[in-house]
Design a protein around this nucleic acid. Structure first.
Lengths: 292, 292
DNA sequence: CGAAGCCTTGATAGCGGTCAATGTTTGTGG
DNA sequence: CCACAAACATTGACCGCTATCAAGGCTTCG
């Protein structure tokens, strides 16, 4: 036993053995990052990715009392627009979305966070969080107090640059999204989003399965509704429905009940005009400052 | 004499005395940041802002042979989508835009960089730059080789976290932009963009003038055309023209020949639903890791 | 079984794009 | 100083993509 878990529903913390496999994605049935961007030494399957870049000293400073794990139910709010900066989260399992609300009741989904992604940096001291974050599925989070996190970063340039690399990928992803919303019609926006999510999800699985079977699994599970797609792409759910129908008819992809099948990836890529890649993985290992 | 200047048009480098005031914004008539985010010790007016956060050791490591200054003409391309990572630039004077091109010839302007902003981080090792950058006006740039920059960051946590803070602000700004493109009609998008630019430009002037006169200058110069506004907001220039006309009629703002006057800032803010602020200034001085 | 949430489909309307023509400004060369 | 070109701004007519409204079907859950 090492570490603890907050249930966060008014009940008291549950003792939690994070060396057991049940807190790893495989056991809970949710998609799981094979390569976490962020260190989390409580997961026995975590041997690759940035864990390697984190010194034991940094780990001990980030988690002096062992990792602090939170379980949150689907639909739970992790933080709200305007909240002060509190904690940084590493998403261990499940999906989270961050969004902005507008006065007319519309919302813009800014990003979908998948296992391994970082949450809680989306604000500044002066104005607090600029987005709200909500769990789409049940999630497991690894929590670090904001002040502690930055304090440790300040003492560890390698961690600080790892953080900068994560932020850079967020910027590139946001800009890709921006291009889609600004310049592409419904078809391209939906294609862009679904291709991006497909790539991120399969990047995890690929690492698991590449060695075993060569055949790529055709269907991928995305735990989102057409309403999520609509709010992320700036369309209405009605029009997303029509667009998906059209894509099915065109033989591009099939998305039903959360299962996505890419029928014609080449043509889709042409329609989406997705950036070649915002690599989900390993980019930092080959980063310039690692060689310099 | 210390440092050098590349003219970058095939001519040979021009000797350049950067202790003379002519490389500072005031002398060249272009808008200038009062508080540069990025260190540049060649400018005699630079006593505030992040310069304070940079140790002399870091400066000497970033600029071992003195600052490397580039002059570029309006319309010049600084880097192109797909280029490998080369150099990081601190924009000293003038405006730069970064944009993505699409196959149908459309372009999405991602951001306008103002004096003090950082350029050249918009890519990764694997895929190179994800945007192109073009000078809107004549510009002066302070150039650091990418590898050197990251190398110095890796040795200096404070610089690394300064960099992370800059990236965070880019992320927040991109997300604000994203919300506008996804959820707002033409009026809101244009209002959002112009308010944001107004704030950034006046943040510089405010620091200069606050002590002197209380009256805020009513007209601000933005060196952009309606076509720039169109490509940044995802509209056509024809419709931007109509929208600006409408805003003039509604008494919201007046934008003609690059001069922007805010007639009704409160109502505009309501229409734009701009984030409360992505502070242009001073945020890092109060950053959590400074206190921790 | 009813309720709630999501998906689907059709009819209609409006925002903003496209096309086209003209005006305005700026810059260049004679 | 004028002629001319190029780039940008403006206006009108028309059209299409997507939103809105509405109704009904499907699935899930209590």
């Amino acid at each position: 036993m090492y570490g603890k878990v907050d249930a966060m529903d008014g009940t008291k913390p549950i003792p939690f053995d994070f060396h057991a496999p049940r807190d790893c994605g495989e056991a809970c049935g949710l998609p799981v990052a094979r390569s976490f961007d962020w260190p989390c030494d409580h997961c026995p399957t975590r041997e690759d990715g940035l864990c390697r870049l984190l010194s034991h000293q940094d780990r001990d400073r980030l988690f002096p009392h062992g990792p602090h794990i939170q379980l949150r139910k689907a639909g739970a709010t992790l933080f709200r627009q305007g909240d002060p900066l509190q904690s940084v989260f590493i998403l261990k399992s499940g999906w989270v979305m961050t969004s902005k609300m507008f006065e007319n009741g519309q919302r813009q989904i800014i990003r979908f966070a998948l296992p391994g992604d970082l949450l809680g940096f989306e604000g500044d001291e002066a104005t607090g969080m600029t987005c709200s974050a909500e769990a789409i599925t049940d999630v497991t989070l690894c929590k670090v107090r904001h002040a502690l996190f930055f304090h440790v970063c300040t003492g560890s340039p390698r961690l600080a640059m790892t953080y900068a690399g994560t932020l850079t990928r967020e910027v590139l992803s946001a800009w890709n999204h921006l291009g889609a919303l600004g310049q592409q019609p419904a078809l391209g926006r939906v294609a862009n989003l679904l291709l991006d999510l497909h790539r991120r999800v399969t990047a995890h699985k690929a690492a698991d399965q590449a060695a075993h079977h060569a055949a790529p699994a055709p269907a991928v599970h995305l735990p989102i509704s057409q309403i999520h797609i609509a709010d992320a792409t700036g369309l209405t759910s009605v029009h997303v429905c029509r667009t998906l129908k059209q894509m099915r008819k065109m033989g591009l992809l099939d998305f039903q009940k959360g299962w996505l099948v890419l029928l014609d990836p080449e043509r889709l890529a042409g329609i989406a005009q997705l950036d070649p890649a915002v690599p989900a993985d390993g980019a930092l290992a080959a980063a310039p400052w690692a060689a310099a």
